[in-house]
Design a protein around this nucleic acid. Sequence first.
DNA 1: ATATTTTAGTGAACAGTGTTTACTTTTTGA
DNA 2: TCAAAAAGTAAACACTGTTCACTAAAATAT
Lengths: 217, 217
Amino acid sequence: MTVTVSSPAERRRNKIRARILSAAERVFAREGAEGLSIRRLAENIDYSPAAIYKYFKSKDELVDELKETFFELILENVNRIADTSTPFAERSRDCVATYVQIATDKPYHYAAAFAGESGTQAPVDGEPGFAQSKKGQAFMVLSGMISEGVEIGAFRSDIDPTLAAKSIWASMHGLAMMIVHIPTYPAFKVEQATMTRNDFILYHADQVIRGLEAHHG
Amino acid sequence: MTVTVSSPAERRRNKIRARILSAAERVFAREGAEGLSIRRLAENIDYSPAAIYKYFKSKDELVDELKETFFELILENVNRIADTSTPFAERSRDCVATYVQIATDKPYHYAAAFAGESGTQAPVDGEPGFAQSKKGQAFMVLSGMISEGVEIGAFRSDIDPTLAAKSIWASMHGLAMMIVHIPTYPAFKVEQATMTRNDFILYHADQVIRGLEAHHG
DNA sequence: ATATTTTAGTGAACAGTGTTTACTTTTTGA
DNA sequence: TCAAAAAGTAAACACTGTTCACTAAAATAT
């Protein structure tokens, strides 16, 4: 009995799995879940449609893996910024902005990650799984930052970091979803709008954070 | 040539159209666009599937009408509150809260209204159509309230109402979408959470509005 | 090395979907 | 009353995700 954690067979299997996922990722990023059909995917990698089901129980399960990988990307980036030693004000701002930017960079991924609809795994629930999920970890980063803000006196002292984080997260999520669904957001010209998208993301981040700030008069 | 704007034939037609829409509404509210199949719908009203296409060009067009009607509902309610003479502080708060409450009351409607995906009509664009759409009108109510807040000195004087409205709307949208996609939001217990949903909606509304407030020290 | 068992892969089918076409029946307007 | 327009339909088309019975190949055990 060897100690190799992966037999040749297993390695080969994982390789093919990865090839399927990679092909799926390409299509999904461009056309979303609806554009990603098993038959098309099978054709792309020169397999029969039924072959996919030897590697994934269902299309949902396949897509779920794309979503999880995507949220890993968000978490990594947000974490990287959160661990920086830049001043709190811009660090928190950057976290919020980065979250929205990555989300809108892969709109189909982001929208799907929150559409429990097709997802088989409870996306985020009252269940213990949440704290371990990538989404849950991202949330912890956020509430951690808010705690820090309260501690250093930047935020009001009566703030409950967990509660506030839920509100802030919703606000970030909202802008991300707006941009995802309305590609021209925020520039639907009810009148001339000159602000660029990235500037608006920062504007929104400031707006959201300002709701937490303490005011030393 | 009579002046009757609707002939008997036309009235009959509209009646059947309404019956189709009504049946569609029932199914859609419970199961969303995916659960609403033309065949099922046809069976419900004792017609053949093809008959539906004498009244609607496509399923998308049918669903678009459900969405438009839904946003009429939101607009009516928000407008009703906005025209109240209650103090500005709670009036603005109520507007935000009502928007989110109605949205989450019909989650499939709200999510679909923003999912350009299946929608054929540009949902909200840089195009002139926006100002006339129900969504556009709801946006005008919001930016109008912000203007009022700036005028009476409740909000900071450097605020651009249009820009701020876009940010606030995103924040409202975010909470609505969170609740839509995560039915237990905000109570995914990373620790014990005792706040009810409606209370949290109000909490969020306060949080969002606070970002606009002037601080007279 | 041989026999056995597990895995990989396939073609065809099932049960759905939205939509179109050719056709029949009904209703309408003059 | 009669032609024209509209309402309604059955059947098919082109898709979808998924399953099943089956074969070919690779891994394992003897």
